[in-house]
Amino acid sequence: MSETILKTEAIHTFIGQHHILQGVSFEARADAVTVLIGRNGAGKSSTLKTVMGLLPASEGKIIFKGKEIQSRKPYDIARLGIGFVPENMGIFADLTVEENMQVAMLREDAATAERLESVLEMFTALRDFWRAKAGILSGGQKQMLAIARAIINDTALLLIDEPTKGLAPIIINALIDAINQIKQHSVVVLVEQNFYMASSVGDYFFILDDGKVVHSGAMAELVQDEEMQSKYLGISKSV
């Protein structure tokens, strides 16, 4: 058995009066990419936000590297080594690409500079637009910037929410390459509705529906199970 880096135990989350997460339990192994899938409104984004502390869990536990983090503040959680790429990417449009990266850097040491070099090698467009306002970037470039910001620190766990949303197939392929590179250093938890992407990078899956996990297993099984795919994803296998 490999080690588990992140585990949620029956977390419940309310937004206002709405009981959004109704006991979500999932885990991410340290040696694998875990994908959360499920139709729109299933609670995938809310799950990531709850892990980050951006939504408060009213019940349940969130365990990161053996420590309970469910009552910590988002900035403390981030400093434990969790990087977050939200669904809307959270780009600071009025800041330059460089400034976006600087805001993300928690230290400005040699190790960070080294990571920056390799990030810019992976996402070369960011170097081209280094001094430009991030607002002018294309959708794919913004996604790259959002991911770059999230891995610029010593990130043990990277949470990415639907990075392929609205992107062209060729860019999706670039993202797949990127995630395959990133997983060498950080554990990746991915929310993904694009099954091509999900199956290309994912090792394990959890399917959410109505604020609960309804299925989980190895990605290889889900690839075989077309019935389950169409039930919860309503997608075709191609891009």
């Binding site: 503040k73 988002p74 900035y75 981030a78 600071f92 009025d94 800041l95």
Partner: peptide
Amino acid sequence: KVGKIVRAGVENPEMVQAMGHNI
């Protein structure tokens, strides 16, 4: 750096928090 964080926060305080800054 603080100034940049403030400008980032004007755009998206939630994201600034998620980056590890005590908003």
